[in-house]
Design a protein around this nucleic acid. Structure first.
Length: 383
DNA sequence: GCTCCACCGGAATAAAAGGGAA
DNA sequence: TTCCCTTTTATTCCGGTGGAGC
């Protein structure tokens, strides 16, 4: 028997898994009506042929920012077609395009203008981009809306040059999505003033709201009656603790179902959810570590070593241990400083700067933010 | 040979709070 | 007790280098 047929023929609690993927865009976004309306309120200008104001969307991971933006995009595109208005909405995730050059090149490509990855100067790419408007490639009075997802990454990497360029291009409106409320610290006043900025804040979902979301998705994705009574509330409660992260809630539910399949169970039990939680956390850490550059891994190793010895980790001590570990192949403290910041961004560690007063100076106290054993396992697996 | 850009490190500057003088 | 000083490191600023696409 064909192996795929054999596996495919197995009983499953799932009807269709894709609805549990956080990237799936449902027709209905529960508990986000207000946010959708806020976005629409600004974007509606586009239908009158006016460039809408730039908007900024804030909120923690899994609060539906991307989903709402994409939802609004879909709606705007369909109505503008109906009303025969010249509007285009482009979506760009700044984790994939991390510099001004890359984003603009990508925009050109999405709009049909071929641009090389390298070789052109920044100015050439910007010209090519602006030419698309000047030459009316897409007809007259095109209004271009650009959704810049996870813009904090780009701003941190590359500064605010992109925003400067885009805000200076006529008929372009920017919707930036950020996880951090204070991402504006990266924007210089010259850009701030030209950003006619409106802010929309996405609060975290509470447990009840998560239940609603999960119920809706589970109807689409699970067979009838396979979920034991408290499975959904449990997933919701766990995710609510994780700052109301809907993505996490969906992951939990999907993984629980997968565990049920694996065990050959026809029902998803609450215990599977708890197991799924462990599994997800383990995977999260291994994934992060696998993609970490080797020097950063050494830094993490040093932190792990010091944590296990229950030593207080100051930046100076960490650098000493790191140098010891890397045996000559070490980089300067200046680099380690960046690595520590990155590890903190990834949520693996936390730092606190303190001063010890005269004669003892300042230092950073570093704390491991994940389970020691989990981390150790992950590091070991990676070797 | 040109450009972008990731990676790197030196040097300048900022910061916090205990110590010590008044 | 108040207030400035001192110290040490955090943090920022900025420029250099080399690989890679064109």
């Amino acid at each position: 028997m064909n192996i795929f047929e054999e596996l495919g023929g197995k009983n499953s609690v799932f009807k269709c898994k894709k609805y549990l993927d956080h990237r799936f865009l449902p027709d209905n976004l529960p508990h986000r009506d207000d946010q959708i309306k806020s976005v629409a309120k600004y974007w509606i200008e586009a239908l009158k042929g006016v460039t809408p104001p730039d908007v900024t969307i804030y909120g923690k991971t899994g609060t539906g920012k991307t989903a709402v933006a994409k939802f609004a995009r879909k709606q705007l595109e369909s109505i503008s077609k109906e009303k025969d208005v010249n509007v285009r909405v482009e979506y760009i995730r700044c984790t994939d395009y991390t510099t001004e050059y890359q984003v603009i090149a990508r925009l050109c490509q999405q709009m049909g203008q071929d641009v090389p990855y390298r070789g052109w100067t920044k100015a050439e790419v910007v010209h090519a981009f602006r030419d698309l408007f000047k030459k009316n490639v897409f007809g007259k009075n095109l209004i271009l809306m650009i959704i810049l997802d996870e813009i904090d990454i780009l701003l941190k990497n590359d500064g605010d040059g992109l925003l400067y360029t885009l805000t200076r291009t006529e008929n372009v409106s920017i919707a930036s999505i950020s996880n951090y409320v204070d991402f504006k610290q990266f924007i210089k006043p010259r850009v701030k003033s030209s950003l006619r900025d409106r802010e929309i804040v996405f609060p975290p979902y509470n447990a009840q709201q998560l239940v609603d979301i999960l119920k809706e998705r589970s109807k689409l994705s699970f067979e009838d009656g396979v979920l034991n009574g408290d499975v959904i509330p449990l997933c919701a409660a766990m995710a609510a603790k994780e700052e109301g992260d809907a993505r996490y809630a969906l992951d939990l539910l999907r993984t629980s179902g997968e565990l049920a399949d694996e065990k050959g169970s026809e029902t998803v039990y609450e215990d599977y959810v708890r197991e799924a939680k462990e599994y997800i956390e383990h995977n999260k850490v291994t994934d992060i570590i696998m993609t970490l550059p080797s020097q950063q891994q050494k830094v993490l190793e040093s932190i792990l070593y010091l944590t296990k010895r229950k030593e207080e980790i100051t930046s100076g001590r960490l650098y000493d241990v790191y140098k010891e570990f890397s045996k000559g192949d070490s980089v300067s403290y200046r680099r380690i400083f960046d690595f520590i910041n990155e590890l903190e961004m990834l949520g693996l560690i936390s730092t606190k700067t303190i001063s010890r007063g005269r004669g003892k100076g300042r230092t950073n106290i570093i704390d491991l933010q994940c389970d020691t054993e989990l981390l150790e396992d992950a590091m070991w697996e990676n070797n």
